[in-house]
């Protein structure tokens, strides 16, 4: 299978605001994601998971090592790799439909697949509403639809359901899985929920506390849709690794 995303020996350090200290987020990280694969990254909070996504998105540059997408080195932000922010980062002055069609319109392509995506993500009843009128779950649906509207090769999801209540969270996981099953896009999902990772991902990458390195690469082979209660053992194993420092 072709590599959709590859990180090889990636190092990244940043200067902490306030103290001015250099903090090493990644110290030689290797990660490969095949085309069409849904990979989840789990690890303790503040371990540098988000840094991995920002490097693939092109928001950050690696200090050393290489980041490639579809075989080509990542050079800055691009519409082939779209990031879904934790808070959605919706444009508050645009309606739901306008948010979703933002990407296609910015590139002069009209509204693109907006109508189709609104229907697929259960948003057609809310097309003319503004983001402030939406629940957290609805906002994340819009964020997902807006990202899918530019038809990226890779979708990067940064704890997209982290701020939602349990029920909305489960619904959104179903929505995400359905979108993935439909388009088979390569997806890289950062989450602090082991349950979410096991439920959705083909592979779960466990990263160690800062500086992040891959501690385990666990394949989840259960058929979809998955019943997480039946995946107790794999969940416990991963959760154990996330909790205990080596």
């Amino acid at each position: 299978m072709s590599k959709a995303v590859a990180l090889a020996g990636v190092r990244h350090a940043y200067t902490e605001a306030g103290t001015g200290r250099r903090v090493e987020a990644l110290a030689g990280l290797d990660l490969n994601v095949a085309a069409g694969e849904l990979v989840a990254i789990v690890g303790p909070s503040g371990c540098g998971k988000t840094t991995i996504l920002h490097l693939v998105a092109g928001l950050l540059k690696p200090d050393a090592g290489s980041v490639t997408c579809g075989g080509a080195p990542v050079d800055g932000i691009g519409t082939d790799r779209v990031l879904v922010f934790q808070d959605g980062a919706l444009f508050p002055w645009l309606t739901v439909a306008e948010n979703v069609s933002f990407g296609p319109r910015a590139r002069g392509e009209g509204t693109g697949r907006t109508a189709e995506l609104l229907a697929a993500l259960g948003l057609d009843g809310a097309a003319d509403r503004y983001p402030k009128e939406l629940s957290g779950g609805m906002r994340q649906r819009v964020a997902l639809a807006r990202a899918l509207a530019v038809d990226p090769a890779v979708l990067l999801l940064d704890e997209p359901f982290g701020a939602l209540d349990a029920l909305s969270r489960e619904r959104l996981q179903d929505v995400l899985e359905a979108a993935w099953l439909r388009d088979r896009k390569t997806m890289l999902l950062v989450t602090h929920s082991v349950e979410e990772a096991v439920r959705l991902a083909d592979r779960v990458i466990v990263v160690s506390p800062r500086p992040a390195a891959v501690r385990a690469d666990v394949r989840v082979d259960a058929p979809r849709p998955r019943d997480v209660t039946a995946l107790g053992e794999i969940r416990r194993t991963i959760a154990q690794m996330v909790r205990t420092p080596e």
Binding site: L83, A89, F102, A106
Partner: peptide, 18 residues
Amino acid sequence: VPPTLLAAARNLGVPERG
């Protein structure tokens, strides 16, 4: 102006001057 909105717009294909 939230920096994430600017980053999101660039990510969705808006050129710097737009």
